[in-house]
Design a binder for these strands. Structure first.
Lengths: 342, 342
DNA sequence: CTGTTAGCGCTTTCAC
DNA sequence: GTGAAAGCGCTAACAG
């Protein structure tokens, strides 16, 4: 009368089995395997051997039940296909994987209901904490203050300042991008970027303008906002060249836009980088390295965002909470599409 | 004397709390909440209200401990950054998320040691099953036959035929690609593809050649194997045009290669698709839709691979194991880069 | 219909 | 040093 038509689980070895085989009590077996000091060396050895023979793995469920801590965390993403979630997720997985923490992955598909459902499920599994990964840097609704476990928001900050959020510093990203172009001797810099509804687009533009102002300059023409696409990069470049043929650098809001920009520049006989330097954001390898010339780009250090979020969560679990929005610096990755004026 | 400097867990409500508040025994509370029939309606109501007031969530650890089933599975990837793992992972997450199963994500970073470590950790957490996601379609070492839970391999098949593997049908993919080109009236078809060390490259070429043979044709020139890159696409096209200017279609081993091919074709004054049709594999949106013209490509249906793997795992957990390598069909996504000859 | 009892696998006092 | 016993939160027998 087996409980179910279930799997032929050949009774995974339990501590009781180990203890019996070693001829000791479960208590002693437990102590022996967990390195407790109150065990005779010879006994410990016998237990360890028994455990090995049975390929015993302690049941973490039972442990967690007792300890009140499960060594698991929930990773809640809103869109897995988006390419920003993945590096963050990798960073987090990395930081956790090093320790003894396992990660539950849940994708809410951008749906609040689904998200709520996942949160409840995760809490039922008694995760020790939650990381919420957004797909854009605009603030998102907080999960609330009354959760029984700490939460860290990554990439997309929570709209509640009492929560802790870790995000890349897009303003600074715009700043260092322009600084690089200035260092290359460029002074007539245009900006072609993406959807103005994205905070990232506005932040980058703001930072860039700030850096220009610091050098007593401004953009050539107004920044052009529209779409994060190659097509827009092409269209905007055509327009730009008509009004401002004196341009010597184009800062693009994304690598995709930059690809389009470069393409049209070359078609129109402008050499990159000799005549016009081009740089993008995101440092998306498949685009940057296949570009002709390879594309200089600002890397948002997303893996680091993930790692930092994981570490912050650790801290919060251990009772050292932080709050507010913390930003992480980005970095310029220099390739052939920008170069010093000779 | 709290157990640890741990989180200020304000004592998450337990079934005992609910029972006390409702004025019944834990057993009755359990029955009431789980829809067991032997409870008076009025009592059940009282328990449910109590549970709600305490925002009680049943502890899945305790449940799992008792049931011998945890409702969790492990998803073992070898390279998260690779773009093939993600859709598969999404499909699997999707199929599971619909039910009551939670997914542990582990990335082995292509390292066998790390993988082994993750497997042990997952078994310790008593997952009900494992999905192993590879990053290429070449067979990979089996995790072994003596695991206490069922395993399904996705994308990369196991080298042990006793295991169950779900993979896209690359031979058929090559076949349907050529059939599409033939349907477009093309007969002088060249093949530029990636690393010959990849089974996927060889399979696709084999399938393509088979379909050509069926029409009494063969490739124009020998298939050119080298790298999965735009750069190789460009170089190979230059070579191709020298020896075989009569070509009227190029089947590319990947979308990246196709992008390079199209670029050089256009530079050399060949119209796409009027003079030469071009198609790729993978249907990687960012590349296919930004291409000029948009790129026809073979989609490997990876989400479906993930979903199928999840379903197969369900089956195996319920005691209906399968084995061997099962292939799933791919599909041609037609865009502007291929067109009927007028 | 409801409550008592036992036990899932493990760790932890506390006697011996 | 070692073992007996209690209990983490829950469900499933079995009594009442």
């Amino acid at each position: 009368m087996t409980p179910a038509p279930g799997p032929a689980r050949s009774h995974t070895a339990t501590l009781t089995d180990v203890a019996r085989l070693a001829g000791v009590s479960v208590a002693t077996a437990s102590k022996a395997l967990n390195g407790r000091s109150q065990v005779r060396a010879e006994t410990r050895q016998r237990v360890i051997e028994a455990a090995e023979r049975l390929s015993f793995r302690p049941n973490q469920l039972a442990r967690g039940l007792l300890a009140g801590r499960t060594g698991t965390v929930g990773l809640l993403t809103s869109d897995l296909e988006g390419r920003f979630s993945i590096p963050i997720l990798m960073g987090a997985e990395d930081a956790f994987g090093a320790g003894e923490v396992a990660v539950f992955l849940c994708d809410a598909r951008g749906d609040a209901i689904r998200e709520q459902h996942h949160v409840r499920a995760l809490l039922g599994r008694r995760v020790d904490g939650l990381i919420v990964v957004g797909s854009r840097t605009d603030p998102r609704p907080s999960l609330g203050r009354d959760l029984p476990v700490p939460v860290v928001y990554a990439y997309a900050p929570s709209d509640d300042p009492a929560d802790l959020s870790i995000v890349p510093d897009n303003v600074d990203a715009g700043r260092i991008a322009v600084e690089h172009l200035l260092a290359c001797g460029r002074t007539r810099i245009a900006h072609i970027t993406g959807d103005p509804g994205y905070l990232a687009a506005r932040d980058r533009a703001d930072g860039a303008r700030e850096a220009l102002a610091g050098a007593g300059l401004d953009f050539v023409g107004e920044p052009r906002f529209a779409e994060w696409s190659e097509g827009w990069g092409r269209a905007a470049t055509a327009m730009l060249l008509e009004g401002h043929s004196e341009v010597d650098a184009v800062l693009c809001g994304s690598d995709q836009i930059a690809r389009g920009v470069i393409e049209v520049l070359r078609e129109r006989g402008h050499r990159v980088p000799e005549d016009v330097a081009v740089m993008g954001f995101d440092n998306w390898q498949v685009l940057t390295s296949a570009s002709r010339p390879p594309l200089t780009s600002v890397d948002m250090n997303l893996e680091q965002v993930g790692r930092a979020a994981a570490q912050a969560l650790f801290g919060a679990i251990d009772g050292i909470p932080r709050s507010g929005v913390e930003t992480l610096p980005c970095r310029v990755v220099i390739r052939g599409s920008t170069a010093h004026l000779s």
